[in-house]
Design a protein around this nucleic acid. Structure first.
Length: 276
DNA sequence: CGCCAGGCGGGGG
DNA sequence: CCCCCGCCTGGC
């Protein structure tokens, strides 16, 4: 991959294993939307605009920002080619490579990911996006760029100070109390986000399960999409159906997937959706 | 109108 | 320990 920089944009030339549509539509993130040929979304305090033409991806950031932040955010440390080589050995996964190659697991903000997947429980993607949008509009920090105003994701401290009634504007329903519980546990340090990066998958999962509204599936999403635990395999009703159909799996046993359960989950999910 | 969504918590068996 | 129900809201 070569990087060309001009003004406040870069172009990643001949980039491998990066398809922006697959990456933003695979269900891992909720703040990106398709606008014409581009995907536009909020990451931290910045509004990102990505446009892809074949293997070239243009992003409205400087090379410095890419090196310091977005190289990590878009998971460029990871060798997806090597993972796909491992997947070639599995008959089912081999077939998913054609449809799903190009998905990257984003390294999203931990607190934002926690709240987002608490909201995702028993919910659909358009509504999840709407609720998160309202949460940001009402409690996030307002920013203005050349496209207009946008709002960052609220901090744990901001949300922890709210009362349950304050959250009624976001129309999250019974999830209100879970959002507050999570914000308070993070704000008070009962859940120490930084430590979750270091204590390993099993212990980090136990910590997350202490949060009200975080069960096994939501915990696994957070571990995968924010903390980089690539072995995490979130089991929702869709993927259970996929395991049943593709692997004839009836039990609750976990398949190893060469240690890359998270990537396998995304590849399988996208594969199933294409087939439909 | 009734049903249920990319779950979870709590209660009862 | 497992099973089952209720849960906010919105879309069908």
């Amino acid at each position: 991959m070569k990087i060309i920089e001009n003004e406040n944009k870069i172009i990643l030339k001949d980039v491998k294993n990066f398809d922006i549509e697959k990456t933003f539509e695979c269900g891992q993130c909720f703040r990106f939307d398709k606008m014409g040929d581009s995907y536009i979304g909020i990451v931290g305090e910045k509004r990102l605009i990505l446009t892809q033409k074949q293997n070239d991806v243009e992003i409205n950031i400087t090379k410095k920002e890419f090196d310091e932040k977005f190289y990590h955010y878009f998971d460029f440390e990871r060798d997806y080619k090597a993972i796909e080589s491992a997947f070639e050995k599995d008959k089912v996964l081999k077939n998913t490579i054609k449809t799903s190659s190009g998905i990257r697991i984003l390294k999203q903000d931990p607190f934002e990911t926690m709240i987002s997947f608490i909201i995702s429980a028993s919910n659909n993607i358009p509504r999840i996006k709407k609720i998160i949008g309202l949460l940001c509009q009402n409690f996030g920090v307002r920013h203005v760029d050349e496209m207009g105003e946008y709002f960052s994701f609220p901090s744990a401290k901001t949300l922890a100070e709210l009362k349950i009634e304050d959250l009624s504007v976001i129309k999250a329903g019974y999830r209100d109390k879970y959002i507050l519980d999570c914000a308070k546990k993070v704000d008070l340090g009962e859940i120490d986000i930084l430590s979750l990066f270091n204590i390993g998958y099993d212990d980090a999962r136990k910590e997350l399960l202490k949060i009200n509204g975080v069960g096994p599936k939501v915990a696994d999403c957070i571990l995968l999409f924010a903390f980089g635990y690539i072995e995490s395999f979130p089991k929702d009703t869709w993927i259970k159906k996929a395991l049943f159909e593709l692997y004839n799996q009836k039990s609750d046993d976990n398949i190893d997937f060469y240690g890359y359960g998270g990537i396998a989950q995304q590849y399988l999910f996208y594969y199933m959706r294409q087939k439909k």
